[in-house]
Design a protein around this nucleic acid. Structure first.
Lengths: 211, 211
DNA sequence: ATTTACTTACTGACCGTTCAGTAAGTAACT
DNA sequence: AGTTACTTACTGAACGGTCAGTAAGTAAAT
């Protein structure tokens, strides 16, 4: 190709890469300041562009926020569904696997800030909240409910109220993700996630076991 | 009508009542808009005063927010501690009582918005977060940990890892309070809290039972 | 030479904060 | 009980900083 490209252009035209880079930058900044307190100039700087560029790819601040939520978290759910589909072992093993997988994909990645963000901003963005609730929360619940039903049918689990037991299976995860982000600075001793997950799985399976 | 002016002045001087009224109004408004999106004019209107009056009693918006958190939620913890102190029955009964009491005092009152508010704003108010974490979260955990230790010592409970089991006892409550506020508009079917609490207590006690 | 991705400089609205002014309340002195 | 002199709780308008959004200009790429 061309061998005579200008040596150090002050910036490059990279139409294809920008949106993703901007979303990644936005995740970082929104994550630790929230929606309102985030300045688009900060997002831009982190993405290596200037404020105006953001407006070439996103209609406004709110649209950027929505795109961020949609494109980052939905794939995780799909992944969980795929795992459940392909799984052939016992319900208890699948339960454990899904919990640990959630933590691996969300709890200990930058995605962990999304649940907290959504909870903080849901009231101010009703349609986004609805989208998230349906495409993430409900879908996630459906996934877990399937596992419980599988276990009940197989005689592994007591015949509990499935929707309620589903929420109880997820809530320790959700709360850990959310609170950990929020109060990270206040927990100098840290928080032994491994033990927390182990114990949840143990206690929950103990509680629901058919015996 | 001119005569009624004397009886119906445009405003009254009520120095003592103002702070509490302003805090109550602030709780309502902050509760469903968050910190940043709340306008002090709205708080003032709801409190029956004007914006300027708020500044007679609170240094600024942040100070009002802090006062709101401090004065509303701390008493609830104290109440819980008093209950535990006075209780004489089994650990399982105390466990159940505390859970239900928390829901009665926080979950189904206007205080239910405070945990969500704190989670949303903790990052932007580090010292307030620290205060809340120490005076509410840690203190609440200490309370629950005491119950578990009581149960273990009495042989009612297995000898689990207490700090972790404590967090697992609380997290379904916390997450329910937080998520319910955030996604209220997205759950047309509502959310059967009674059954949720019943099942949590049942599953948890089942899970931790020494048998 | 033309197109267009990107920057830069600017605008306008919003809202926390301030403070001079006003009216409610109080009490001293008729 | 009425008038007056004084204090202070409260109002309301204006100020100023911030920042989302915009439009004119610049430079990369073809």
């Amino acid at each position: 190709m061309a061998h005579t490209i200008a040596k150090n252009p002050r910036w490059r035209r990279r139409k294809n890469a920008r949106p993703e880079e901007i979303i990644t930058a936005a995740l970082d900044v929104f994550a630790d300041r929230g929606f309102a307190a985030t300045k688009l100039e900060d997002v831009a700087r982190r993405a290596g562009v200037t404020k105006g560029t953001i407006y070439l790819y996103f209609e406004n601040k709110e649209a950027l926020f929505k795109a961020l939520i949609r494109q980052t978290i939905v794939p995780v759910i799909a992944q969980g569904e795929a795992i459940a589909q392909a799984f052939t072992g016992s319900a208890r093993d699948l339960f454990e696997k899904l919990i640990r997988e959630y933590w691996r994909l969300v709890g200990e990645t930058s995605l962990s800030s999304i649940p907290r963000l959504m909870i903080a901003e849901a009231v101010n963005f009703p349609e986004l909240a609805r989208f998230y609730y349906e495409e993430v929360v409900t879908r996630g619940h459906r996934l877990m409910a399937g596992v419980l039903e599988r276990g009940i049918k197989a005689g592994e689990f007591r015949s509990v109220n499935v929707p309620v037991a589903t929420k109880l299976a997820m809530s320790p995860l959700m709360h850990a993700v959310v609170a950990r982000k929020a109060f990270a600075a206040c927990m100098p001793e840290g928080f032994d996630v491994a033990k927390y997950l182990d114990t949840h799985i143990d206690l929950y399976l103990h509680g629901i076991a058919n015996s």
